[in-house]
Simulated scan of single mutants.
Amino acid sequence: MTFQKEPPHKHGSVGRSAIVLVNLGTPDAPTRSSVRRYLKEFLSDPRVVEIPRAVWWFILNLIILPFRSGQSAKKYASIWTREGSPLRTHTAAQAQYLRGALGERGHQDLTVAMAMRYGSPSLPDVLSKLKADGAERILLLPAYPQYSGTTTGSIYDAVFQHYGSVRNIPELRFVRNYHDHDGYIRALQHSVLNHWEQHGRPEKLVMSFHGVPKRTLLLGDPYHCECLKTARLLATALKLTPDQYVVTFQSRFGKAEWLQPYTAPTVAQLARDGVRRIDVICPGFIADCLETLEEISMEVRHDFEQNGGKEFHYIPCLNESPSWIAALAEIAEQHIIGWPTQMPPSQREQLKQEAEAGRAAALQLGAQD
């Protein structure tokens, strides 16, 4: 077996610690070729599609990619921004703000990077760069609050496959889930309450999670249970009664049965039943993406209004909200305990005093102006 070449070792150098925030992925551009390349990588993962490889190869390459790539490219174009893919933009910003939040908590000798399971920047490329930069301890932080073999499990696969060809493997830690983490639930609560403070309350709150085949639940995947626990905790935090919210699952693919109830039919039925206003939040996504901005805010909104609904509100993902960045820092900090990332308390207090003195001087200067 051939191993990757190790970077030159510098005696006396101090190994660094790093956190990698890993999201699903996104095409590089909203074009047919870019989307096809992305979908091929994504849908070729046996964690994502559990169909015999030979059968799936023909379905994927002869049916899905030739027809779906162009359709998906149009959907991506409808949400693309000047900065590029919303998913990549938000994930990069979250990593940057997470670095700052951890720095404020005293973790100075710490690198925070972002990677994509599919597409770029690829997880193997990011891990290789961290190694070249001297990272000897790496925490993998998935952008999936609820564990599923189709998502978090796939990240594990990619990490283990990458290090299968590395001679000197760094210390690795993984965040498995945070579906019931107090900070995460609190951030969701703040997001909803802030929206209601500005726009009033709906008749029904719809909590829409990404769907997976029902077969995965029957085979032991905990995703469905963790989604329901998140929903229950959020409803409790919002003081909602069972008739004031509903949990649904979106993004069905293929003819097999997926987790139910499905989002689009449920929303359409709510409208037909006379519900005039619904608010929809997607707790399973920590960053806005195609599934939230196009599928929910556009397609599901259309379904609701076409069936008689009058007022549809999409509550954005947590993105870079201060409460979420604080929660993300809490989650990360709990998993890097024992790593040499914090400066001595005396030095931290000195920097704190210097920062406070700087702010006071700036305020005094502003008052004089």
Rank of each mutant, 00 (worst) to 15 (best):
D180S: 15
A268H: 01
G274K: 08
S251R: 06
I138Y: 02
G119T: 06
D45G: 06
L228F: 08
A158D: 10
E104F: 09
A29C: 11
L218I: 05
K129A: 07
I63R: 14
Y178T: 15
S33F: 12
V192I: 13
K352C: 11
P222F: 12
H181T: 15
S154D: 02
I51R: 15
P86F: 01
L140H: 01
Y118A: 08
F160S: 06
V212K: 00
R16C: 05
K214M: 13
P213S: 10
R232C: 09
V22I: 05
V300R: 00
P30A: 11
T241H: 14
P142R: 07
T263M: 05
A95K: 04
A355P: 04
C282H: 10
P7Y: 09
G103N: 09
A73W: 14
H224R: 10
R359G: 12
L62V: 13
I281H: 00
E330M: 09
R301E: 02
R68V: 10
K75L: 10
S33T: 14
T236W: 03
L21N: 04
I286E: 08
Q4F: 08
S154I: 01
P27I: 13
Q244S: 13
V246F: 00
E104L: 15
G274V: 09
R82S: 11
G183A: 13
A29K: 12
L351F: 01
M114P: 00
L365Q: 15
S85K: 09
A362K: 15
I51S: 15
I169R: 12
V48C: 05
H162D: 02
W196K: 00
H179V: 10
R252W: 09
R137N: 06
W80V: 13
R53I: 11
S72E: 00
I51H: 12
L328H: 10
A268G: 04
R176H: 01
I325D: 07
R82K: 15
